[in-house]
């Protein structure tokens, strides 16, 4: 066991981990941040996406020890300071971009990463960027629509599709 320290959602966090402890395990089990989910064991589903030093990563595909000193943001850190939903979260609710909610944390984190890289993505760019996030409920329609809306695009024509 060794000590690991990082900043999670703006607060310092530390704990004892094994070499094999994954970042997602540290978040869920040591810190009790259960918003980040595990949906597969081959790195494809993306339910575990968090930001490490501002970049989207799969927290089930990174060891906790490798996040030593890093700035980590999880879905729990995405709301506004007053507790209200952030822009992307609000767009997901407004446009029914989630159903069972299990893939949602990863979707929100990937969407945030996309919009920080590309503030006004096209539909095709959004679909391409979500290659590593699998949703089984929504058929993706409303996820893509929500991200377009979060980017400030007019999505009213999509409702009529």
């Amino acid at each position: 066991m060794s000590q690991v320290s990082m900043t999670v959602n703006g607060k310092s966090a530390s704990g004892e981990v094994e070499g094999r402890t994954l970042l997602v395990e540290f978040l869920r089990e040591n810190l009790g941040l259960t918003g980040t989910h595990v949906g597969c064991d081959t790195g494809q589903c993306g339910a575990c996406v968090v930001h490490v030093d501002g970049k989207a990563v799969k927290s089930c595909n990174m060891f906790a020890a490798e996040a030593e000193g890093a700035e980590v943001t999880t879905v729990e850190g995405m709301a506004n300071d007053d507790g209200s939903l952030g822009t992307i979260q609000q767009a997901f609710q407004d446009h029914h971009g989630l159903q069972c909610g299990f893939c949602t944390p990863g979707m929100v984190m990937s969407a945030a990463a996309l919009l920080s890289e590309n503030p006004n993505p096209s539909e095709a760019e959004i679909r391409d960027y979500l290659e590593g996030n699998i949703c089984r409920c929504t058929g993706y329609h409303n996820i893509v629509k929500a991200i377009m809306a979060a980017a400030g695009q007019d999505v009213s024509h999509i409702a009529a599709e």
Binding site: K55, A56, K58, N61, G132, N133
Partner: peptide, 8 residues
Amino acid sequence: GDPAVRNR
């Protein structure tokens, strides 16, 4: 891969 994979 995908964006998150490319970041690691």
